[in-house]
Computed example of a mutant assay.
Amino acid sequence: MENSAEWLEWDVARAREWLVVPRPGDDKYSRGVLGVFTGSHDYPGAAVLGVEAAMRTGVGMVRYTGPSSVRQLVLARRPEIVGVGGRVQAWLIGSGMTSSRRTLILGGELAQATAQGVPTVLDAGALDLVHEARGSVVLTPHYRELAEVLAETDRRAGHAAGKARAEHGSPPTAAEIAARPALWAVRAAEQLGATVLLKGSVTYIAGPDGARFTVSGIPSWLATAGTGDVLGGILGALLATRHSTIAQDAAAIAPIAATAVLVHALAARRASQGGPIVALDVAEAVPATIAAMLAGD
């Protein structure tokens, strides 16, 4: 591992501190409300998987405000979600979306969500919104997506790009990021001013404040369609349940992100038992995984 002395391997003992158990006086609002704006005509399943994972992670309520055609599929799977807008404590945005196919109306709706200043997960087709988002942001790219975000950042810099290149060099390719993920997770967090969760067999979580966490031992069976959408749902839910903590200390974002990755990995291991899995298997294993983590297993 590159610069291994600077990175802390996240484990169950540390993660347990960031899992929230409801108290007798809690209600669905105090437990956290997650806004979800995900899915598209081409990839509706991303919304279904993200919402499924979020509900199983312990959030009090999910408000789904994505495309109306997708909303019907989400409601069919999870009738307890709320399909209208309202106050939220965190956002999950972009899973199953494509930035190149963003309409003006959709762009305006996404801008309204990211302007609210609550903790926000930007995934897939919303990664480019890091430059507009207010509040604490977590990006969840894989190598190719991070290369695209950094290239777009370089283009946006315009006349200032020369200075950026002098400090960091030209934007990296996906292959360069894959070869040195620790380095580029840190650089991306510094350049973008956001927490970067760089997905891989070892996942690197780097915060703009200097936080450096890794989660290793991630099952290779997770390399299948839709599991990233499940991770987004877990992360969004944990941000919503910890919204008051984040409001007091934005540095809480990185350990919460690391906890989400660990929950995701352990749920995959529980679901797999050494064999193949699909994304929904991982989401369904989340409650038992969290229970085991809370018990110190």
Rank of each mutant, 00 (worst) to 15 (best):
residue 242 R to N: 15
residue 260 A to Y: 02
residue 268 A to V: 05
residue 196 V to Q: 05
residue 197 L to G: 06
residue 214 T to G: 10
residue 231 L to G: 08
residue 214 T to N: 14
residue 268 A to N: 04
residue 260 A to N: 03
residue 212 R to H: 14
residue 258 A to G: 15
residue 238 L to W: 00
residue 254 A to H: 08
residue 269 R to L: 11
residue 226 G to A: 08
residue 219 P to Y: 00
residue 265 A to W: 02
residue 218 I to P: 04
residue 216 S to R: 14
residue 244 S to R: 13
residue 240 A to C: 06
residue 221 W to P: 00
residue 201 S to P: 09
residue 206 A to K: 04
residue 203 T to V: 14
residue 229 D to E: 14
residue 251 A to C: 15
residue 210 G to D: 13
residue 245 T to S: 15
residue 205 I to Y: 00
residue 206 A to S: 15
residue 200 G to C: 14
residue 250 A to Y: 06
residue 238 L to E: 03
residue 269 R to Q: 15
residue 253 I to P: 10
residue 228 G to T: 11
residue 262 L to N: 05
residue 225 A to R: 11
residue 260 A to K: 00
residue 236 G to N: 09
residue 222 L to K: 07
residue 269 R to G: 09
residue 243 H to S: 15
residue 236 G to C: 11
residue 217 G to I: 12
residue 220 S to T: 15
residue 209 D to T: 14
residue 247 A to R: 02
residue 213 F to T: 04
residue 254 A to V: 07
residue 247 A to W: 02
residue 266 L to I: 07
residue 201 S to H: 15
residue 206 A to N: 11
residue 216 S to W: 09
residue 257 A to L: 07
residue 268 A to L: 03
residue 201 S to M: 12
residue 227 T to C: 05
residue 261 V to C: 02
residue 267 A to S: 03
residue 269 R to F: 07
residue 220 S to K: 15
residue 197 L to S: 10
